[in-house]
Design a protein around this nucleic acid. Structure first.
Length: 592
RNA sequence: GGUCCCGUGGUGAAGUCAGGAGUUCACGCCGCCCUGUCAAGGCGGAGGUCGCGAGUUCAAAUCUCGUCGGGACCGCCA
């Protein structure tokens, strides 16, 4: 076989050489062996026709090749080099290089393909405009960071598969062309040729299908699933993204935590070499009170303190509010100037606060515009309760509880959030999410999908709650967070028809609407649905954090820009009028 | 739908606030020299519609307006 392959290549005038080793694996133990490596020309150090050093690079690393004849190789030429591995002469060892103790000499260099100079440097000594990187993504992928990131991603996928298989999960593929449901995010839509005027939707997630597999007796389902949502893009959001999607029958919340924790622990270990220990849990309520967020970044302190009671008798109108909370920024008194504080005040207002109370902590006590409206007891109380020391900065928000938590939570991140690659990997389960996120005209609005099981202790409240009491009803919904990022969410699902009917009624979803939106799932539930629950987490986000990237585009081979285009393929693009005809579509001219 | 930042030879930056000849730096590219470099070195050279279009001005990379592209964020993402 090898002979015939050589023969056919030679027929085309190309001398094919079969690689014997990867560049990065060669070391002192190969000295004396004749080897062939193949790859791209990295840096060259050409002295003359009589001596040149060429670094040949493949995905494993680079190796120095000594060329003692005239060979015209340039950046990114594709070469195969055969030669003798020898120890470098004394004093010529490069400790920076894995293969730095050796070099390949007495070489025969075959140019397999020439290459134009790369559109940007292959080294990573400076940032390259992302648009240019994406336009030439095939070149960008050759760079060490993208090699590392994509290979880390492959490890994550592999580790997840291993963990799920080991735990008895069955991989099931669900369709990409499905019926549109008006819930949730905006659908991507695909016109039907056989039924002109009708459309498929691309799945936002396999949610309903995975529940059907539970009714179908599959017991434990998983899928590394592509999900599509036509919403605006962000650093942590692409149109298409990958999730580990899982669902299991006859399980409770703790079971779900266990098998998902196993998957993320395996994935983390595969990439970083360190396995996270037991993942702690925190209730949604505690996360809001301590961190002002449902995805708290627990890598740093600056927690929120409730000091409402200090102002029970206050004379100051600013603090005559349902809640007063504060955070302390260590050393902030000296690092934050007046402009920075004004900037923070603007932000606090944009986030919904009426204002931002701030105090510099000095040896003499608190300094700030509001101190003249505060009593001695209030001033000293703030300092004591926030454990503020000289040199610190203290910020207070006086408002209702929701606003105070939200604004201080965002302020805390603004002032203290560490870089993405610092502080280790702090996974955290957030439990007991509220079942409803708001009350509009006296009617509760669901926080998740309508199949989320209410908390067992709160089911009675479903019949008694009024007004804002709806917001106190907890659900068996939970999130997994990592260093302040939401990785994913899940819930125990409602499987009893009476509870489901009750929820639909509360949500004001009548029988017709139920049938239109979820008909097939409700039908399925009539035929014996087991208790079940599940989870899904984003693989792009997990991988990005594990490799220390703050942008998921860095762990996606061919991502879209923020405006949803692909500089490499120029998607999206118009289609041929005949295609429109076939689909029964007509494009409405843009109104300008 | 909105707020903010960016756009200068192939790449990265400085120049823009305070208008005065396409000026500068590093890398890369091309040529010559060079037998131990490793981000090789020396000498020489080429390469530009300062994203695009209007406007202001004697004069615009620089100021104004618009527009295109990229990025961060708000809205949105059950």
């Amino acid at each position: 076989m090898a002979n015939s392959r050589r023969g056919s290549a030679a027929d085309k005038g190309i001398l094919m050489s079969i690689r014997t080793h990867y560049c990065g694996e060669l070391s002192a133990e190969h000295v004396g062996q004749t080897v062939t490596v193949a790859g791209w020309v990295d840096t060259r150090r050409v002295h003359s026709e009589h001596l040149a050093f060429v670094d040949v690079r493949d995905h494993t690393g680079v190796v120095q090749v000594v060329v003692d004849q005239k060979v015209d190789v340039r950046s990114e030429y594709v070469v195969a080099v055969t030669g003798l591995v020898r120890a470098r002469p004394d004093g010529m060892i490069n400790a920076e290089l894995a293969s730095g103790e050796i070099e390949i000499a007495d070489t025969n260099v075959q140019i397999l393909n020439e290459a134009e100079p790369p559109p940007f440097p292959m080294h990573d000594r400076n940032e390259v405009d992302e648009n240019i990187r994406l336009r030439h993504r095939y070149v960008d992928l050759r760079r060490s960071k993208m090699q590392r990131n994509l290979r880390a991603r492959a490890k994550v996928n592999s580790a997840i598969r291993g963990a799920m298989e080991r735990q008895g999960f069955c991989e099931i593929e669900t369709p990409m062309l499905i019926a549109s449901t008006p819930e949730g995010a905006r659908d991507f839509v695909v016109p039907s040729r056989l039924n002109p005027g009708d459309f498929y939707a691309l799945p936002q997630s396999p949610q309903l299908f995975k529940q059907l597999t539970m009714v179908g007796g599959m017991d434990r389902y998983y899928q590394i699933a592509r999900c599509l949502r036509d919403e605006d893009l962000r650093a942590d959001r692409q149109f298409e993204f990958m999730q580990l999607d899982a669902e299991a029958s006859f399980v409770d919340q703790e079971d779900v935590f266990e098998f998902i924790s196993e998957a993320v622990a395996d994935a983390t270990e595969a990439v970083t070499g360190e396995r996270p220990t037991d993942i702690p849990t925190m209730t949604w309520h505690e996360a809001q009170e301590r961190f002002g967020s449902d995805k708290p970044d627990t890598r740093f302190g600056m927690e929120l303190n409730d000091i409402t009671d200090l102002f029970a008798e206050t004379e100051s109108n600013v603090f005559k509010t349902p809640v007063v909370k504060g955070i302390r920024m260590p050393g902030g008194a000296d690092s934050l100037g007046r402009n920075a504080i004004d900037d923070l005040t603007d932000k606090a207002k944009r986030w919904g606060a009426k204002g931002l109370a701030w105090f510099r902590v000095r040896d003499e006590g608190l300094e700030g515009a509001l101190t003249k409206f505060m009593s001695e007891a209030e001033i000293s109380g703030v300092q004591e309760r926030l454990e503020a020391e000289s040199g610190d900065m203290v910020f207070l928000i006086a408002d209702d509880r929701r606003v105070a938590n939200k604004v201080l939570g965002l302020l805390r991140l603004e002032l203290g959030k560490p870089p993405v690659n610092e502080g280790g990997f702090n996974f955290l389960w957030i439990t007991d999410f509220p079942l409803f996120e708001a009350v509009v005209d006296g009617n509760p609005i669901p926080a998740h999908h309508p199949f989320t099981m209410p908390h067992a202790d709160d089911i009675e409240m479903l019949t008694t709650a009024t007004g804002d009491e709806w917001l106190d009803i907890r659900s068996q919904a939970y999130d997994l967070t990592l260093n302040g990022w939401e990785l994913g969410s899940g819930s125990i699902r409602i499987f009893q028809r009476d509870v489901q009917a009750q929820i639909f009624e509360l949500l004001g979803i009548g029988p017709d609407e139920q049938q239109a939106k979820f008909g097939f799932l409700l039908d399925a539930f009539r035929f014996g649905a087991p208790p079940h629950g599940g989870f899904a987490f984003g693989i792009d986000r997990l991988t990005a954090l594990l490799v220390g990237e703050e942008n998921i585009r860095e762990v996606i081979a061919f991502p879209k820009t923020q405006s949803g285009s692909d500089p490499l393929t120029n998607a999206p693009s118009p289609i041929d009028p005949s295609q429109l005809d076939e689909l029964g579509l007509r494009v409405v001219p843009r109104a300008d």
